[in-house]
Computed example of a mutant assay.
Amino acid sequence: MAGLRERKKAQTRAELQRHALRLFRAQGYAATTVDQIASAADVSRATFFRYFPSKEDVVLYDDIDPVMVEAFAAQPEGAPLLSSMRRALRDAFDQLEPEKRALEEVRMQLGRTVPELRNAIRERNQFSVEQIAATVAATTGRAPTDLDVTLFAGILVGVRLAAQALADQHPDRPYVDIMDTVFARLEQGVPLADEPIRRVAP
């Protein structure tokens, strides 16, 4: 269990992100300054930079993934791996308070639509594969470097990328619902993988 100091730091970081996302939603990412975020959170500019190296990092900071890891660890033994991942996603988001869930939608939308944020997220996907592989390995008893474990972790990163693309096509749908749809489709298999190539006349 985290100590009091760690809990206070986590609370301050969460409050800074909450105020930042509120401002981003109200006036846009580019128009919002670090000074405005610090003022809204009633902290100094120096305090802001103790928690986030830049404004960009406020959006990149993800405190939902650890909740998903815990939700995944709580899935019953013997449950199929992919179905457990899908349920863990739902369980994690169901635990969020309404405002936190709404602001998480804002955070994910910014990650899809602001070029510098989108590029930064893509650069971090390699780390996501390694992190997911470690979680899958611990759950299945396989090595993190096992080909199937690495492949499965890459598929899960692909699920996120596919969900982001679908979210751009359907901006009114909650991101978690889109993720659930992609997981459900993957559970059924991907028939397109066996689709024969057809030469289409120009």
Rank of each mutant, 00 (worst) to 15 (best):
L81F: 06
V182M: 02
F49N: 09
A71I: 01
Q109A: 13
R87C: 06
L96H: 04
M179P: 00
L166N: 02
A133W: 09
I178M: 07
A153Y: 06
R86E: 08
E70R: 15
K100Y: 00
R160P: 00
F49T: 09
Q95T: 15
A79N: 00
Y51A: 04
D180V: 02
K55Q: 12
R142F: 12
P66E: 07
L117D: 06
A120I: 03
T113H: 03
F183R: 01
Y175T: 02
V114I: 15
F152H: 10
E97V: 02
A120F: 02
L151T: 12
F152T: 15
A162V: 12
I64W: 04
L117F: 04
M108S: 09
G141R: 10
G78I: 06
E77T: 09
V159C: 09
R107C: 02
S83N: 02
A71D: 01
Y51E: 03
F49P: 06
A162M: 13
P53K: 07
T150K: 13
V176P: 01
A138L: 11
L89S: 07
I178K: 04
A137T: 07
D168Q: 14
V157E: 07
G154I: 03
G141F: 09
E56G: 11
P53N: 07
Y175D: 03
Q95M: 14
